[in-house]
């Protein structure tokens, strides 16, 4: 039975409602996306449905690092050419992808699953900290890089982790804060300029 307000069949409305929950889409753009999918059923909708089903079936979190992949351990953890002595700690899987895009890191990753947050009630036990401590205490680990956001929550988490990792006697480092590449000083906010001056280095 179609409700008075619904303009399409319940199946289409359900599709629109689900699409509207995808990041980047609102109700209007979900309606447009649904329409496009229905118009291009063979070329777009069915392959998308198959891809979604396959991803839902095969993709899972890596038991070592927490990143997403179709294999466990994930391709990054299984790659023998990566440096086992370096562990880069990130908050979310998206951060792993960002660092991989940059291509600047050849070690292993560890995804915490978020950051400590008083506002959101995220406590240490909600994050993959115990797993990190186990990995960092393994023989051969030389350095843990805390690649967490330059926010109060991100740095609170970084300090907490540094404190927990300290007894392991390994190098603990963090990403530097400051002037972005292509950034002009007069356009930077005061906080970033302060951080940049604090973490200046001799040339």
């Amino acid at each position: 039975m179609r409700s008075k307000s619904a303009t399409a069949a319940p199946e289409i409305e359900a599709l629109i409602a689900l699409l509207a929950k995808v990041p980047g889409l609102g109700p209007r753009s979900a309606r447009r996306a649904a329409l496009q999918l229905l118009k291009k059923k063979d070329a777009l909708m069915l392959p998308l449905a198959a891809a979604l089903a396959e991803a839902a079936d095969k993709v899972g979190a890596c038991s070592r690092c927490g990143a997403l992949d179709t294999q466990d351990p994930c391709a990054l953890c299984a790659n023998p050419e990566r440096d086992d002595g370096l562990i880069c700690v990130v908050a979310e899987v998206g951060d792993v992808w960002a660092l991989e895009r940059a291509g600047a890191f050849r070690g292993r990753y560890h995804v915490l699953g978020g950051v400590l947050s008083a506002l959101d009630g995220v406590r240490p036990e909600h994050l993959r900290i115990t797993a990190l401590l186990e990995r960092a205490s393994a023989a051969g680990v030389r350095e843990v890089i805390l690649a967490l956001a330059a926010t109060v929550d991100g740095q609170t988490t970084a300090h907490y982790l540094a404190e927990r990792l300290q007894p392991l006697n390994i190098t603990i480092s963090r990403l530097s804060h400051g002037v972005p590449v292509g950034g002009e000083l007069d356009l930077l906010d005061d906080g970033t300029l302060f951080a940049a001056l604090q973490s200046r280095r001799s040339t």
Binding site: A118, V152, T156, G191, F194
Partner: peptide, 28 residues
């Protein structure tokens, strides 16, 4: 508009950052 970037100034000080977070949590 930002008037004073106090948080940024304290990001490297673990204890001060904990103090700031606690004071803010109490007010909230």
């Amino acid at each position: 508009e930002l008037a004073e970037p106090h948080a940024t100034k304290l990001l490297d000080d673990a204890t001060a950052l904990a103090g700031l977070s606690s004071a803010v949590a109490l007010i909230r």
